[in-house]
């Protein structure tokens, strides 16, 4: 390559670098703006392009935290975690078991069952939503958290099963064989040999399930109807519907707090996110 061509390539490269950085910052701007809006007064939020607030006023957080109708955001956060934590743990446990069954055993009908599993990836929630509601209604599960726990307990998350099967297929089968030689049963092979090796994949699956359940709005909307059991997403929706004049700094403060656990989780476990998306092709 000639000297001038090399230089042209170098210049165009740095132009591209600048462009994608600037564009990335524009993408991030709404979140940054949201953070500063939580400290602004209602009048300041509107009609101004200033990013920083005139004074850092935390009254939005204080009055927002009190919530509506005497129920504070502490309740909403606790409720949300009461759903999200068990759902995440159950999903990871049962999906790992099922993935082990598919990845390591050759039983009659396995191919067909696995094909069914893959095809349920494309089964739209819209179609099964109403009968599921009617079923859970018969069980007396409306306004409880059982409609969240049951699908996790019964491994109805084909995404994660598929992801874990793919991961397990990458682990050498000789490990199992030698453990069988030593007299291990299948369950011990699973818990003592495979599970420890699968930690990154389990972690990725757990992270995604955590985030999806945390952000979910439709299912809480369907199944929860008393305000003491509300999740954060229901409470936030209520906060913009309940008052005729919305105190936006309050709402933004609580919306930002709602995002905070995800931000913390993301930055403490970034590696698993990227690996999880990359290896499984899962949409995050």
């Amino acid at each position: 390559m000639s000297e001038s061509k090399k230089r042209r390539v170098r210049i165009s490269r740095s132009v591209i670098n600048v462009l994608i950085t600037v564009y990335g910052l524009i993408m991030l701007y709404p979140i940054v703006w949201m953070f500063f809006a939580t400290f602004k007064k209602n009048e300041e939020i509107f009609g101004s392009v200033r990013l920083l607030p005139q004074t850092f006023d935390i009254s939005g957080y204080i009055s927002g935290w009190k919530g509506t109708g005497g129920i504070s955001y502490l309740t909403y956060f606790l409720n949300t975690f009461r759903i999200v934590v068990p759902v995440t743990l159950l999903t990871v446990m049962t999906c790992a078991l099922v993935a082990y069954g598919f990845a390591r055993f050759r039983f009659p009908g396995k191919k067909i069952l696995f094909m069914i599993l893959i095809s349920t990836l494309m089964l739209p929630n819209a179609v099964i939503m109403i009968p599921r509601y009617s079923l859970f209604n018969k069980f007396g599960w409306i306004n409880t958290y059982m409609p969240f726990y049951a699908p996790a307990l019964l491994a109805t998350y084909p995404f994660f099963i598929f992801m874990l099967v793919q991961f397990m297929r990458g682990l050498p089968k000789e490990l199992d064989e030698s453990a069988y030689m030593d007299g291990c049963g299948t369950f011990r092979v699973f818990t003592q040999i495979l599970l420890p090796l699968m930690k990154p994949a389990l972690f990725s699956a757990g992270l995604f399930q955590f985030i999806w359940t945390y952000n979910d709005y439709l299912n809480p909307l369907l199944y929860i109807n008393s305000a003491t059991k509300y999740t954060i997403s229901l409470a936030l929706k209520l906060s913009i519907d309940a008052e005729s004049v919305v105190q936006w700094n309050k709402v933004m403060a609580m919306a930002f707090l709602a995002n905070l656990p995800l931000i913390i989780l993301f930055f403490s476990a970034q590696k698993y996110f990227v690996e999880g998306i990359a290896t499984s092709g899962i949409k995050g």
Partner: peptide, 27 residues
Amino acid sequence: REYQGYLYILPWLLGFTILQLYPFIQS
């Protein structure tokens, strides 16, 4: 030993039947 696979996929088999296939037909 290979047949034990059924045992491991049992949660999904139940989940698929009760929470996916049945609602699908019912719908």
